[in-house]
Design a protein around this nucleic acid. Structure first.
Lengths: 111, 111
DNA sequence: TCCTTATACCTTGGTATACAAGGTAATTAA
DNA sequence: TTAATTACCTTGTATACCAAGGTATAAGGA
């Protein structure tokens, strides 16, 4: 696992990116997908996930829908229209920041 | 200026990288070099810089030497032998983290 | 049957890191 | 002589994250 500090500021963007791409996801699904995509190297804890989702919902970036699977419930999140613009800005900001950071660290990060 | 949160966890590595490369620098010089290298996009505030330098000195990663320029003093920092190993590990960790992050965000970050 | 693991939501308390703002003082430029 | 720059520093505040805990259903293994 990485130094916890590195994740700071990126969790929100990770969540938004996944939601924009997949249209609609529930919390647990997000944690699993992050784990899978990064082969377990990045793990979003629930103590970070849920407060972030609730905050994004509160400010109108996300909206929710509760679905019942048997007796269990799932809360699906999706990005609102306003949220899409905000997401795009945040992505752009992170991309630009990483580019600046690379000016100092000279990492080779082409995938 | 970027969202402050993005810098979290990277300031220490930025400082170490510059010190490893330049051998020896003083605080103010570090802030200026970061500003120059990133065209003003990344700015390390003094409230972040000095506590970090002091912490790294306290744990033996950095050692210091005070030089007098006229009546003014400069405190030069350089990376100790142990510090070099720790720096390398931290660089590796950040590089790996960014690679994982890229698995989700698909940025094109080749410089 | 029972126990563990996985699914699925959530909250609370603690920690760490950075910023804003402030303080001191010498030097240089206008 | 005044402002800007150089150069060190500290204090108080915000916040984002994690660890740990809580609740409950579902599925799989012994």
């Amino acid at each position: 696992m990485y130094s916890k500090e590195l994740l700071k500021g990126t969790i929100e963007i990770i969540i938004l990116k996944l939601l924009v791409e997949n249209g609609s996801m529930y919390g647990y699904e997000i944690t699993q997908q992050v784990k899978n995509l990064t082969k377990g190297k990045i793990v979003i804890s629930e103590g970070a996930l849920y407060p972030t989702l609730h905050k994004l919902e509160a400010i109108g970036v996300l909206s929710t829908e509760i679905i019942h699977i048997g007796r269990r419930q799932r809360k699906y999140y999706h990005v609102s229209e306003v949220g899409k613009d905000i997401s795009a800005l945040k992505m752009q900001e992170l991309s630009s920041f990483l580019h600046s950071l690379n000016q100092i660290l000279d990492f080779k990060l082409s995938s």
